[in-house]
Design a protein around this nucleic acid. Structure first.
Lengths: 187, 187
DNA sequence: CGCGTCAACTTGACAGTGTCAAGATTTGCG
DNA sequence: CGCAAATCTTGACACTGTCAAGTTGACGCG
């Protein structure tokens, strides 16, 4: 039967299936066989395209980094504001939780994968350097690192359920409130 | 043979074995059978004490939260300074990486476990309220939430390998530099 | 048009995993 | 001393990732 053999776009279909499954159970509980079943193919079809379980998760992470970097870049261009980019970051973590969780779980990925390295590097460049044009020698902007840490911490705490319940209802508002009052921390 | 039966302190031994294993492979790759072998008992001894794989990980997380809260509390008493507590937080994440990673991975734990809830609550109280005495109605201190997010983000990024390489060598110094310049973010 | 080569996918097998039921051993309490 | 309960083991089951071998289909070349 020609419908099963040569699916045509199985790679993409498997990634989509994996993302769905991850959204339900988290990345560490992803099962290759379950993803294969979801895509309607045999249990070892994923291995052919991704080699490995880590290979499939790496492909998910790569796609995640692409969308992530696109989102951040767009937000930078539109607003040029740290706070707004931070809010976009937070929204990405919430709306694309499956991607977000997979991206920051290196023990499940092929860290040396060229596409992954490239995607990560692109996202890092946006986050480290902030609005500063890529000066030679300047490897990071301290303000950007602070902003990144803050919003990544908020996102991680939120996604992992370690957030004050009364703030979890509107995390973006909480983020804006916290960010607006950052100066108080110094005193 | 009386040496294998009635180990006497198997529960603790299994937790220790689990912590060692987690330190090597991460919490999601923990194997009950491997932990049992490490402790020198049969493959299903862990189930008797912890019921579940999630049960063992929960026990690890509970112990982690206890040590974590002790560390933070001690730092508060000694210094009374946000920055110093943050530094202690960061050091804990680095020095007790296995605990730290397990604590913030809810999909692997029994979230409703009373000991876990208690431990988490204790840590949260320290982190949310900061130095403020537990006023009624005040559920969190904005400065504390900002500090917590910042240092948790730094810790997570560091532990997950998403840190500028030249800063990863001395993360505490990086944290202090970032925290000291936080006010700049507002402008 | 036919054929062969190659990629895409399947089938079957293997060791390892978590979990459960049943059994064996030891402790402690009456 | 003896019995009940707690502790641990043994054996089994379904499921997992991975690998080798086989099957099917597409595509270019004669």
């Amino acid at each position: 039967m020609s419908s099963t053999y040569h699916h045509g776009d199985l790679r993409r279909a498997l990634i989509d299936a994996a993302v769905e499954a991850i959204a339900e159970t988290g990345p560490s509980a992803l099962s290759l066989r379950a993803a294969a079943k979801r895509a309607g193919v045999s249990h070892s079809a994923p291995a052919h395209h991704f080699g490995d379980k880590a290979g499939l998760l790496t492909a998910v992470a790569v796609q995640g980094y692409e969308r992530f970097a696109d989102t951040l870049e767009r937000s930078w261009r539109r607003t040029g504001d740290f706070i707004e980019v931070g809010a976009a970051y937070l929204r990405f973590a919430i709306d694309h939780r499956a991607y977000f969780e997979t991206m920051f779980r290196p023990e499940l990925l092929h860290e040396e994968d060229p596409d992954l390295v490239r995607g990560r590097e692109r996202a890092r460049r946006i986050l480290y350097l902030g609005s500063a044009p890529a000066e030679e020698g300047v490897l990071y902007d301290r303000r950007a690192l602070a902003a990144w840490s803050l919003v990544h911490g908020l996102s991680s705490l939120l996604v992992s359920g370690n957030f004050p319940p009364e703030l979890a209802a509107d995390p973006e508002a909480a983020f804006r409130a916290v960010a607006a009052g950052l100066g108080e921390l110094r005193g």
